[in-house]
Design a protein around this nucleic acid. Structure first.
Length: 913
RNA sequence: GGGCUCGUAGAUCAGGGGUAGAUCGUCGCGUUUGCAACGCGAAGGCCACGGGUUCGAAUCCCGUCGAGUCCA
């Protein structure tokens, strides 16, 4: 990008000058002839703290000022998008306002919902998590206010001059002094696009960025520009992508020490008083320190070890020892962090993210646990659910799909879960630590890694708890990256796509007409063979549904005048549909008659439509957050995976099943139509995308009753055609995902018959009626247990009785019993043990099916295992044991006397030796 | 999606080829005006389930189910 890109007519006419910053060397535009520096960090410190640069605005006032300003200037106001970016599969969270329109609007495939438009989009960025609360300006969630204009080859809405002009006018409208505003040149690259951009600075603070997205990676005829080692080409679509920081503007308008005081004035003061820190509210010194802290932090990166450098600077400036400063400032930073995180959670949970250990759910849990940890450090004894609820209410309940009750329940459950994990973990650490302390060793790194990896225990907690036990933990500074690299090593990439080699051939073929969409209820059709290779047939049109969207491919037959082939599988590659056939060959140009296996297809359609219905029923029963995490349809059963924060109970399952069948009874029609993506999104919301995000500007919308989804599958015509839905069970797939297994239509009836048969068979076995099964089984189980105990008692008695009758003999220093007993082999061991208890030896034999030998020794002179091992070998059997107890078995059951004799010899030798 | 750890008495856990244990809780008795505390005693176990190895498996191996956790 060149200097030329920033030579705007607007700048000239308004009397701007282009300057080079004397501090950083960057170019910037200003109205102030005296100005030497660009106005950005670290060239210029904050000057707005205590001296606001805008008229005072609260957060909502500032938002409204912005949106209505742009409305007055011909922009259409657009509702915010969810913070969970469900319309995209490359990011989990909405990170910028432009993310709402990527990739299809920015690429020009889909028209924008309005043009130009204005929006205030809540965005979540977790990259600077550590700086939140400390830097005075970092937030996990912020609102990016924006106005966007989408220009293409035919229409020009506006471009750079108008954008800067609007910016000027808006800043003036909220009381900004335009003399103090600078526009810093700052080429922008990101997400495969690039373009010139200016940062808008006032009072040392960047309050907006104006990006002129005009370059892309897509090759065009125009000459490319190299940026960061990659080539970018001018695009036909030129997009005005602006971003105004709502919170920053509000901060600059209040002049408060930190952004948090401006954004959460009420919450911060009430948290301070809850934490017993009220006295700080009126303390001028604290305000001064915090302002100073934010000022210095504004000039530097404070992540990781840099934080210490910040502390040092502030401590020097106010002349207090660094430890004392840390002690003073940490609790307040924690309050700020809690205020920020709880708002982030309100948006995440309100927009129906379910905490879990995967994807965006993992991020929600991360923030939630971090908040709990900080609250704990601060000794803030306050339910997090209350804080989140308060945030939801401040933002406005109507902003969210999720109900407050469910949000509260999620937070409460997560809070409980986390404290259970920490409690359990603490015990495990104590155990490990004390075992290493006994050995007088350090707790090795491998052990620490296991504790973290398998039990989720932070390294710092491990060190702390271990120290309390008096053990030392070996903990390198790069612990977490060490663990991460260990994981990445175990990664294996998947194999190559076996279909890849057909790609060039298929690319040359015309698209196959998808008859299965036009006539979903038909099963017979005629077509012409376009190509045939390696057992793959391509037709000009087909009724065979290719695998996709959780629905398996159809099977069936293709018939020509000469041959009949079986269609085993169908796949779609681009717009071409491939039939994998067996049992013959087809010729190009040949006419074929196709027949889809009707029974199977209908069963698949029933299951597929049933999936939509079941999801809808689950949403009604469980809450707005219910979202499909995957599905697989079969002809005998199907499964639906949904995101949910706890196990589905039997009762909930029954409710879902009843509700689903009610929808069947109402016999609702199934409507299917192609709609423009952006329109469909606006009309139905992002719950459209249950089975992933389909490509293209138009999407296929399937409406079953009031359940509306983007879906490429085939469906029945009315819900009544499904017949019946039977839930077969529920499984917990992983944290936050429940799998409902069900059958529809004939398969449902068969499943019920099977279950019934099971009950009947079980009842018949017990000669009772099926309804008596539970009570009878319970009775039998109880009796069975009691009998077991009775047998145990009797056996003990028997051993005692036998014991009383047995005579000892004395060999050397030991009392010895060597004899055959007519008792159950399982009793031999118990008897022998008793006999040998003190200074005794018992060598017992019992013959039933085989010869059982037991040797128990109560003296170290006789090694039971060794002796019996030798005997067993001599008598063709196997055996062994330890010093005190040994078993052996031999097939030579008649030779018990010989075995006892041999044993006597060995024992005698051992005792006398 | 990949990895790791764990399933033993009502609860928390120990044991890790050779007799299934501890603590708390429960029940009974004693002490006490009563309670708490204490003392004595008892009940309570398909050692998750199914295979395998072994003379012998709660223990080792494989699988299933369940719980937890880390990474992408």
């Amino acid at each position: 990008m060149s200097e030329q890109d920033y030579q705007l007519e607007y700048f000239r006419s308004e009397g701007f000058e282009r300057r080079i910053c004397t501090s950083c060397g960057a170019a910037f535009w200003t109205r102030d002839p005296e100005r030497q520096v660009c106005g950005d960090a670290p060239c210029e410190p904050y000057s707005f703290i205590g001296d606001p640069v805008f008229a005072p605005h609260t957060l909502p006032e500032m938002r409204e000022a912005y949106l209505s300003f742009f409305e007055r200037h011909e922009h259409t106001r657009i509702d915010r998008y969810p913070v969970a970016a469900r319309w995209r599969d490359d990011i989990y969270l909405t990170i910028a306002s432009i993310a709402d329109f990527q990739p299809f609007v920015t690429s020009g495939q889909v028209p924008p919902p309005a043009n130009p438009l204005t929006i205030s989009q809540p965005c979540i960025r977790l990259n600077d998590l550590d700086s939140v609360g400390r830097s005075g300006r970092h937030l996990t969630l912020f609102e990016m206010m924006a106005h966007h204009a989408f220009n293409d080859a035919t229409t020009e809405i506006y471009w750079k001059d108008r954008t800067v002009e609007l910016c000027d006018q808006f800043l003036a409208s909220i009381g900004g002094d335009l003399e103090r505003v600078t526009y810093k040149e700052h080429p922008w690259v990101g997400g495969g696009n690039a373009g010139p951009s200016v940062e808008v600075l006032i009072g040392g603070l960047e309050v907006a960025t104006l990006v002129f997205m005009s370059l892309g990676r897509q090759k065009t005829n125009e000459p490319p520009i190299e940026l960061e080692g990659k080539l970018y080409y001018p695009m036909q679509n030129r997009i005005v992508d602006t971003g105004y920081g709502l919170e920053r503007l509000t901060w600059a308008s209040s002049g408060s020490p930190t952004i948090y005081d401006a954004v959460f004035p009420d919450l911060v003061s009430s948290l301070l008083s809850d934490a017993g820190l009220d006295h700080h509210l009126t303390d001028k010194n604290y305000t001064k320190i915090l302002a100073l802290n934010a000022k210095f932090a504004g000039l530097m990166d404070i992540s990781g070890p840099n934080l210490f450098a910040l502390r040092k600077k502030v401590a020097a400036a106010i002349d207090v020892p660094i430890d004392r400063l840390t002690k003073m400032i940490t609790p307040i930073e924690q309050v700020y962090t809690i205020a920020d995180h709880s708002r982030c959670l309100a948006y995440m949970l309100g927009d129906c993210i379910v905490p879990s250990n995967v994807r965006e759910g993992y991020l929600a849990r991360l923030v939630l646990r971090r908040t709990l940890r900080v609250m704990n450090d601060l000794r803030l004894d306050l339910p997090l659910a209350d804080l989140v609820e308060r945030q939801v209410k401040t933002i406005g309940e109507e902003q969210f799909d999720q109900s407050i009750d469910v949000i509260r329940e999620i937070v409460e459950r997560e809070t409980e879960k986390y404290s259970a994990t920490i409690e359990r973990g603490t015990r495990i650490i104590q155990k490990v630590a004390s075992s290493y302390k006994k050995k007088a060793e350090k707790v090795p790194l491998s052990e620490v890694i296991t504790l973290y990896d398998s039990h989720g225990l932070p390294a710092e907690l491990i060190r702390e708890v271990a120290a309390e036990e008096g053990a030392v933990v070996e903990l390198p500074d790069n612990f977490y990256s060490l663990v991460a690299s260990m994981h990445s090593e175990s990664q294996k990439d998947g194999g190559e796509d076996p279909m890849a080699r057909y790609e060039p051939r298929i690319a040359s073929l015309p698209p196959t007409r998808a008859l299965y969409y036009e006539q979903p209820s038909e099963v017979e059709f005629e077509a012409i063979v376009i190509d045939f290779f390696d057992g793959f047939a391509v037709l000009d049109q087909t009724l065979f549904y290719p695998e996709g969207g959780g629905q398996p491919a159809d099977t069936g037959t293709l018939l020509t005048t000469e041959s009949m082939v079986r269609v085993e599988d169908v796949a779609k590659m681009g717009d071409v549909i491939l039939h994998r056939v067996t049992g013959g060959v087809l010729k190009r140009g040949e006419r074929v008659k196709g027949m889809v296996d009707e029974e199977r297809r209908w069963s698949l359609m029933r299951h597929h439509t049933a999936t939509h219905i079941l999801l809808h029923a689950a949403k009604e029963v469980l809450g707005a957050h219910i979202h499909q995490a995957g599905s697989q349809n079969g002809s005998d059963s199907a499964r639906l995976d949904i995101r949910h924060f706890k196990h589905i109970t039997e009762e909930e399952l029954r409710k879902i099943e009843l509700r689903a069948n009610q929808i069947l009874q109402n016999n609702k029609p199934v409507y299917i139509k192609q709609e423009e993506r952006q329109r469909a999104e606006q009309k139905y919301g992002f719950t459209l995308y249950q089975g992933g995000v389909p490509p293209g500007s138009r999407i296929r919308v399937v409406q079953v009753g009031s359940e509306i989804q983007a879906c490429a599958g085939t469906h029945v015509r009315t819900t009544g055609e499904i017949g019946v839905i039977k839930v077969l069970g529920v499984e917990h797939i992983q944290d936050g995902i429940e799998r409902i297994i069900f059958a529809a239509g004939r398969a449902a009836i068969e499943a019920m018959q099977q279950t019934e048969q099971l009950l009947k068979d079980a009842a018949a076995e017990l000669r009772i009626q099926p309804e008596n099964l539970p009570s009878t089984v319970q009775r039998f189980f109880t009796e069975w247990k009691e009998r077991g105990k009775e047998v145990e008692r009797l056996r003990k008695k028997l051993v005692e009785l036998e014991l009383a009758q047995i005579d000892y003999e004395q060999i050397g220093p030991a009392y010895v019993v060597i004899r055959e007993l007519d008792v159950d082999p399982s009793q031999l061991a118990a008897l022998a043990r008793k006999l040998a208890k003190t200074n005794g030896i018992a060598f017992l034999a019992s013959s039933s099916d085989r010869l059982h030998l037991v040797l128990a020794s109560g003296t170290p002179r006789v090694n039971a295992g060794e002796i019996l091992g030798d005997i067993a070998e001599a008598f063709g059997g196997k055996g062994g044991g330890n010093m005190t107890m040994a078993h052996a078995i031999s097939p030579e059951r008649e030779r018990s006397a010989d075995a006892l004799k041999a044993g006597r010899r060995l024992i005698t030798t051992a005792l006398n030796g």
